[in-house]
């Protein structure tokens, strides 16, 4: 019992758990001492609130308080009303969307859409590639012109053939050479294209041990030439022939 009487102060300051509070209330019905003390101590606790300095209240406070009370109240009522009001078409769509799309499902949907676009894009590209391949197949490489090359001077036994290959809009010159004397040191055979007395380099080659060699050269667009000449150059990268002519058309 004594223990329970100790809870009187805690009961008054409302610091008992719900269970303890209920127990104390039961105890209070039976304990005359607590009943007697309760009232006076509770009053004392409440008297503490009078320990304040009287402070002048600002004039403007009344309207601020009244505005707050009645605005707040209106707001609360408005909130209740608003819930009942029918939503606009847009709001309804949004609310349906919100209801059906959680953040996760939205993310998943977005990823799926991105994947779909990706696949579509990919298949478009694939189509283009296939089309290009088909075009190529329908437009095979054609030999436009053939030339035969004959050897001169020390390479008199050398022979060669040259082909102009048309492949779409591209023209390639292919030259195959046989029985070429082996080169020494820095020596290379250089191909020259002749037009109106001007020579243009079309690449260099070094024949293998059997004296065979192959060279291809992509002609510049709209380019034409009259003759092909091959020289033995003492070093590569010449822009004009220095060495002796060994083969020609």
């Amino acid at each position: 019992m004594e223990n329970k009487c100790d809870n009187l102060s805690l009961f008054i300051i409302n610091e008992l758990t719900n269970q303890d509070k209920k127990q104390f209330e039961d105890h209070l019905l039976k304990c005359a001492k607590c009943q007697q003390e309760l009232k006076s101590i509770q009053e004392t606790w409440q008297m503490l609130s009078y320990d304040v300095e009287e402070t002048e209240v600002p004039e403007s406070l009344k309207s601020q308080v009244m505005d707050f009370v009645f605005e707040e109240n209106k707001f609360l009522k408005h909130e209740e009303k608003k819930e009942a009001e029918p939503m606009s078409f847009k709001e309804r769509i949004l609310s349906v969307a919100k209801k059906h799309f959680s953040p996760i499902s939205t993310a998943v949907t977005a990823i799926l859409i991105i994947c779909l676009i990706g696949f579509y894009w990919n298949s478009l590209h694939l189509k283009d590639t296939i089309k290009a391949l088909e075009n190529n197949a329908a437009d095979p490489t054609q030999i436009v012109t053939t030339y035969s090359l004959t050897g001169e001077s020390f390479a008199a036994s050398a022979t060669g053939s040259a082909y102009l290959l048309q492949e779409g809009t591209e023209t390639n010159l292919v030259i195959a050479l046989n029985n070429m004397p082996i080169t020494k040191g820095n020596e290379v055979y250089q191909v020259w294209l002749l037009k109106n007395g001007n020579r243009q380099s079309a690449g260099t080659l070094i024949p293998d041990q059997n004296g065979s060699g192959l060279i291809t050269y992509r002609l510049p667009p709209e380019y034409s030439f009259e003759d092909i000449g091959i020289t033995l150059e003492p070093n590569p990268f010449n822009t004009q022939p220095q060495g002796q002519k060994v083969l020609g058309t």
């Binding site: 609130s49 304040v52 300095e53 009287e54 402070t55 209240v57 406070l61 009344k62 308080v65 009244m66």
Partner: peptide, 22 residues
Amino acid sequence: HRPALEELYDRYVKLIYSFSIK
């Protein structure tokens, strides 16, 4: 009844204000 609230305000605001400011 709004005037009733205003009357209670006039009666007790000083006490409530003094208490709250402390």
